[in-house]
Design a protein around this nucleic acid. Structure first.
Lengths: 237, 237
DNA sequence: GGGCAGGACTTGTCCGAACAAGTGCGCCCA
DNA sequence: TGGGCGCACTTGTTCGGACAAGTCCTGCCC
């Protein structure tokens, strides 16, 4: 059973995407929405706060809320695995492990994963495809305490995240993403099927579980012709 | 006068950054914090929600909140102009206009700025420097209704955003950022002082005012050795 | 020793209320 | 006509309360 504020958020989101309210249109006042849904004002405010966080509506004291620009693409608003994201956009993700190495943690690994330098880590390099086309090279370092579970996963599993949740009850709950661009190296170019030196989008990512314990640290390189990312933003001061 | 929940959020944020609570440590329960600050639980919850949105703490029903990973770098969490961002990180931003053109809106401009194709727009190309070093080329298209104001701003103004707010009471309130990577063209390379073909981080950005009316649409190309971006994320399902 | 049930604890949801703060429109007057 | 003031409206803040839902430790039983 969904909570009431989620239901209301879903209803409003659907209405906006259906363009019941065109971009630029004013939303009804909170009190009116509250009456319409037979809930307290606080519940409606909760729902509206979600939409504002997604960048769908404006919110500003004293002024009516306004529907902001149109459709949403793949957004950074929620943390998603590659496979989940692919499914959500109606595409198919496949995975292929290129190499797997156990080695002692470098200083960088130790800092990223908050473990002691020299302790055991598992480094995995994967090529990921979207509808068959290679789009992403993942170089992931897993903390030692999860390494055994990772090694048990078959190399061609489509969603590692899903397997971890099911088999080991490990949930990726929070992510920190550092974004820049790099030129494709020889190996990258070969695997992704682009020319050497082509620009790739690089995302260095650290993922932690609910307790804030780092699980993996990864460097992902994306072909930019196949994938791009969207971030929504609001002035807060 | 700051609101109470802002004060509490600031206090907690400061404590976390001061590492009073180490990463991985448990925060006190809401009821305890509420008693400590002499406020209702709802007020503390409001403050904690801000920190969770910034990726500083975890939040999960039934479990105590946990302090997540360390210090924050330049984040996409709040919308900031180039100049404001530079100032906040203790650096100096300067601007230089390369070219200014009035022309009819292309189909792309019209879609981005939600105006009619063919109507008047102002295209400006700027080189931006950080502590003297060129780091960013901005190709910005302004909607016709703001063009006159933009043209009145002197070419070497450091912060266009600031001038717009002061002179024309135009506020950039919401942003949508589409991120990928491109190779530097001849012109880009020359201006930024990199080799042709070097990877640049490209951010296509549309900014709107409080009412959701698009003000500018910009394509920004960053040298990746000077600047990078951080996004924080949480699982929402 | 391992697994399961219970219960204390903690966060999430929702209500109703009151007041503060900011917006924006219309009216009035110079 | 234009500017400024005031007022109705709307969102933001905060309180206090009650209950639901989820977590996690503890102790019992096999």
């Amino acid at each position: 059973m969904r909570t009431r504020h989620q239901e209301i958020a879903d209803a409003l989101r659907a209405a906006i995407e259906r363009e019941d309210w065109a971009p630029g249109a004013l939303l009804p006042p909170e009190t009116e929405l509250a009456a319409g849904y037979h809930v307290a004002r606080g519940t409606v405010r909760h729902a509206l706060a979600s939409l504002a966080a997604e960048g769908l509506i404006s919110s500003r004291q004293g002024a009516r809320r306004v529907v902001l620009g149109g459709r949403r693409s793949q957004s950074f608003a929620e943390l998603r695995s590659f496979a989940e994201w692919a499914t959500a956009t109606g595409r198919t993700a496949t995975g292929l492990v290129i190499s797997t190495t156990r080695r002692p943690a470098t200083a960088q690994d130790a800092a990223d994963l908050r473990i002691t330098p020299g302790s055991d880590v598992l480094a995995v390099m994967r090529l990921r495809r979207l509808d068959g086309a290679p789009v992403l090279i993942e170089r992931t370092v897993y903390a030692g305490w999860i390494a055994d579970t990772i090694e048990k996963i078959e190399p061609d599993a489509d969603s590692v995240t899903e397997r971890l949740r099911r088999d080991a009850n490990v949930v990726f709950a929070y992510g920190r993403h550092l974004i820049d661009a790099v030129a494709a190296g020889t190996r990258d170019a070969e695997l992704l099927g682009v020319r050497r030196g082509s620009p790739l989008l690089r995302i260095r990512r650290t993922t932690t579980n609910h307790a804030g314990r780092p699980v993996e640290s990864s460097e992902d390189r994306y072909r930019t012709d196949a994938v791009s990312f969207v971030v929504h933003n609001a002035l807060s001061a």
